[in-house]
Amino acid sequence: MGLVFSILVLVLMIGALIDIITRRDDQVKHLPKVFWVILVIILPLAGSLIWFLVGREYDGEGIRLPRPRERRADPPAAATPPPPSDTRSTEQQIADLDREIEEWRLRAEIEKRKKQQGEEGAR
């Protein structure tokens, strides 16, 4: 029984803290928000009950859960390019890089030999 009561007080306290923090300053009555937070933390049960009874401004509709904040619209999909889709495995990518490195090495060797042949022919 004591554990259930403790959990309920904790849930009530967390709910009150979230409600206090998410309220606009003009929706908080009698004390500044900081003092309400301190009161709820120091006296979880009494502070939470006092908050919900006299601390918050209620609309004519009565008690409502706070609305979640609206998220910003994501930029259109066309504005961001799609991520590259390389379906090769890591081993395949490494093997391709090794082949490319070998190809560049061979091209450099061919260029080097052409220069040597050109210098020998000029002599």
Score class of each variant (00 low, 15 high):
58 Y>D: 08
51 W>F: 15
76 P>W: 04
99 R>C: 08
59 D>E: 15
69 R>I: 08
104 W>P: 00
19 D>Q: 04
68 P>L: 11
57 E>L: 07
22 T>D: 03
105 R>N: 03
65 L>W: 12
29 K>D: 02
35 F>H: 01
91 E>M: 11
60 G>W: 10
75 P>S: 02
44 P>V: 00
24 R>E: 01
110 I>E: 11
111 E>A: 15
90 T>K: 04
17 L>Q: 00
45 L>A: 09
75 P>E: 11
45 L>K: 00
68 P>Q: 09
113 R>F: 13
22 T>K: 08
106 L>I: 10
97 L>E: 09
38 I>C: 09
34 V>Y: 05
44 P>D: 02
48 S>T: 05
66 P>S: 14
27 Q>T: 09
53 L>D: 05
85 S>W: 11
71 R>N: 13
31 L>M: 15
36 W>D: 08
27 Q>C: 10
89 S>H: 02
75 P>N: 06
67 R>S: 14
63 I>V: 10
86 D>E: 01
64 R>A: 01
19 D>Y: 04
42 I>N: 00
92 Q>C: 03
109 E>F: 11
14 I>S: 09
90 T>P: 01
45 L>C: 03
29 K>Y: 11
77 A>E: 06
32 P>R: 09
36 W>Y: 14
104 W>R: 10
61 E>W: 07
47 G>F: 02
113 R>W: 14
114 K>V: 12
